[in-house]
Structures are given as structure tokens and as C-alpha cells.
Amino acid sequence: MGLYDFLAQYWPRLLSGAGITVAQFLLAAALGVAISLCMGLMKLSQNALLRGAAVTYIEIFRGTSLVVQLYWIFFVLPLFGLTIEKFTAGYLAVGMNIGAYGAELVRGGILSVPKGQWEAALAINMSPAQRMRRIILPQALVNMLPPWGNLMIELLKGTALVSLISVADLMFEARQINSSTFLSAQVFGAALLIYYVLARFLVTPFMRWLERHMARKLGRT
């Protein structure tokens, strides 16, 4: 069966799978950004307890594999009475994993802001919170956006693993179709193309737009 005929027959399932993939991506991205900010700031904190918590979180999530984290959240947490529905467990695991990598980007971004900016903010008597929020973070954000673009692609790819706990995303649908039709080249080829289109024509252009937009706000052109 040619790719065209194949798509004509199976597009609704691939489309619904892609929809779940996009939903997982967006939820995990929101969670990942929030965790990154939180852990990145904690790792820079004066408080040793907060710093220790952040280091532990980051090392655990970066030191183990996303598959392991996903299984642990989905299969082991219920043993502690914390049963999480598979769709939620999916983006939770992916988001928490990406959050650990993002935390390092946030930390690096904040450290990349010149010391003079802290001093100037102090000289107009801003509180530590105001300095961070009004002066440092906006500049740190611009500096760290390019590596966030790569991280977002990693995040999109990471969502394919939620199929392992039977979330009906694009990867899952592709496997299902494959096992009932054995049209492997067509179905996996089509899925590869869809992921590629999502990454290359949606995620990357959006991140580039965001970079340009933020750079304009900084008056850099």
C-alpha cells in the first residue's frame, strides 16, 4: 500500500494521536517552565536547604532516565496511595524531567546577567524580589531562549514515551496500527513525518519568533 492510500485510510487515528501529542507537549511545557524557574531560583538561593532541595531534584531527574521516571510515577506511586491517571502521569513525568534540564538553563541565564545590573537595581533601592523580577529575569530570559529552543524539541520527542503507559498519543496510535496492519514503513514513516513537521514548522519557528520578540523588547535588533 502506498503512503497516500495509507494516509487516506488511517489519517483520523494519526490525527487524533497527534492531537494528544500536542496536548501532552503543551501541558508538559507549562509544567516544565514552572519547575525550571522554581528550581533554577532555588539553586541560586542563599538558603542551603532550598539549594540542597534543588540540587537533589535536578540530579535525580537528570541522572536517571525519563522512561524510569515515567514507570516510577505510573506504577510505583499508586503503591503509596497516589494513583495518577495515565494521561496526567504522562505529562507530569515529561514536564518534571524537562524541568530539571530547564533549571540549569534558568540558573545559567540569571548568572549571565552582568553584576552591574544587580548593583544599579540596588542603587535605586529595589528590594531583592523587585531586582529579580523587574531587572534580572527579563534579561536572563532573553539570554536563555536559544537553548530553550533545543530543549523544547527534546520535550516534544520525550512525549513519545508516554505511549509506554498507553496514553493514546501519536506514537501509541502508530504502534496500534502497525500491529494490526504490519504496514510498518507507511505507519512509522508517516509518524516520523508528523513529528518532524511539528518540530520544524511549529515548535522551532515559534521559539525563533519568541527570541526575536524578546530581543526587540531589549532594544536589540
Binding site: I153, L156, K157, G158, A160, L161, S163, M171, A174, R175, N178, F182, L183, S184, A185, F188, G189, A191, L192, Y195, Y196, A199, R200
Partner: peptide, 20 residues
Amino acid sequence: FIRSTPLILQIFFVFYVGPQ
């Protein structure tokens, strides 16, 4: 292309497409 698509999907592709 390879960098933008999931490794797990590539693993399936290589494993299942050969026999076809």
C-alpha cells in the same frame, strides 16, 4: 530530521521496516 524526531519511533522503524 533525525534530531527532530523521537528515538523510540526510530527504533520501531528500524526494527519493523526491515522484515517488510
